[in-house]
Amino acid sequence: MPPPLTTIAREWGRIGCVGFGGPPAHIALLRELCVDRRRWIAPDEFEDAIAAVNLLPGPASTQLSVYCAYRVRGRLGALVGGLCFILPGLVLILALAAAFLADDPPAWLQGAGAGAGAAVAAVAVRAGVDLIRPSWTRGRIPYILLGALAAATLGPWLVIVLLACGLASLALRLRAAGVFAPPLFLAVATAGSGGLGALCWTALKVGALSYGGGFVIIPLMQADAVQTHHWMTDAQFLNAVALGQVTPGPVVHTVAVVGYAVAGVGGGLLAALIAFSPSFLFVLGGADRFHDLLRNQHARAFIDGAAPAALGAILGSAIPLAAALTEWWQAAILAASALLLLALRAGVVPTLLVAGTTGALIALAGGPLP
């Protein structure tokens, strides 16, 4: 007998509240709930679901949470479970955005944001290295390098490079099999000059056009929010990324801070709605075909190019994030954070909290603020 919706809401809401640490933590919590404790899903089916959502664009851990709720309680359960997984972190990050993006926040709060933001580039390198190491092969190097270069230099056009890498990998696979693959051309429409239309396009890129999730969305948002539309300063954007790391739930919540900068709470909710909607649509529309997706060689060939390019983009995003720092003490925090994260393998959330506390103390001591 399937569990009641109240159980889905309670269990998925709990994961949304305690899910610090990004996708690895979310996957572990979902596995403990659905496979080990409740035994709603068989272990091999859970592993297949992880593989399937990694073939889809957008935030994989969000899609996995929606899929697990779908398997347990059908479409209505998927909607309830997915929303309860997303909402706790979304509410918290919007409340923090209101404080950090206020017209005149207290100096200690500005310092905390500047300190945590200074560590973000090191977090990006840690995330990229951790993801690349298990899947490292010589054939992936060109895609990784292209993704890193694009994230460091192309900003809003990064999504085109990710798609092009996937299509190039597919074309090479088809030609190796003796199938003619015509030249590939990409046409991408861009949003208008700003406002809610541009915000919707940014959120759509985050939720439906990005492979790799997590930090791969950072250069996409940074180019739109800071360089193209000037919704935020570099310092404010770094704060937004840090908030996305220290709050529970998916890192895609960061787009809600960008939306808040554009149009307040309404803008934040709109950005989150557009960014997360594709995850629900992909899963509700295709959950029964996940096994077919895993056997589809064309889909796997596309991912063989797009996925390593996305991982390279995570590494490349560290360059514009570090370049946005303006104070000497932020550079010192970045160096210390890199030591903690890369050499000592400290946790991401504790490192960001230490960096934020250091920044707050520097501000209270009268240090310069960005």
Rank of each mutant, 00 (worst) to 15 (best):
H291F: 06
I15Y: 01
A338P: 07
G285M: 08
N239C: 14
S279C: 15
G21F: 01
Y67W: 15
R39N: 07
L284W: 03
T326V: 10
G74C: 12
V246N: 08
P320Q: 03
F46C: 04
A122V: 04
G13S: 01
Y260R: 00
G366A: 11
F185G: 14
T247F: 00
A307G: 13
G128A: 02
L162R: 01
S61V: 03
G264H: 11
A52D: 07
R138D: 06
T6V: 11
R133M: 11
L170P: 09
A49W: 06
T6L: 14
A336D: 09
A336C: 12
S210D: 11
L209R: 02
L341V: 08
L109C: 11
A343H: 11
A365N: 09
R39T: 04
F290Q: 07
A322S: 13
C165N: 08
A148P: 04
P59G: 10
A122H: 11
G359Y: 10
V283D: 00
W329I: 08
G192F: 04
I41N: 04
S210I: 13
R173W: 12
Q110M: 10
A261T: 06
A69R: 04
V123Y: 00
L96K: 01
A324D: 03
M1G: 15
L315R: 00
L174W: 13
A338L: 09
D130S: 01
G285W: 09
A275I: 02
E11C: 06
W231Q: 05
G259S: 03
L284P: 11
W201M: 13
Y143T: 05
T351P: 02
G213D: 00
F100V: 14
G115I: 00
L342K: 08
P134T: 03
T351G: 00
G305L: 02
L270A: 07
A151G: 05
T7I: 06
R140K: 15
A97T: 09
L174Y: 08
L29E: 07
S277Q: 10
F185L: 14
R289A: 15
H291G: 04
V179D: 10
I217C: 01
R71N: 11
L145S: 09
G16V: 03
L243M: 10
A151C: 07
G195T: 02
R173P: 07
A127E: 00
A9N: 06
L340P: 01
Q236E: 14
G264N: 08
D44W: 07
A116K: 05
L158M: 10
L340E: 05
E45G: 10
W40Q: 09
L79A: 10
A235N: 09
Q297G: 11
G359I: 05
A335G: 12
A189F: 15
A112P: 01
G312R: 00
H291S: 15
A271M: 09
G16A: 11
L174N: 13
L341Y: 00
A332C: 13
P134I: 02
G366N: 07
L87V: 15
L29G: 03
T357I: 14
A208P: 02
T153I: 06
A208S: 12
D292G: 07
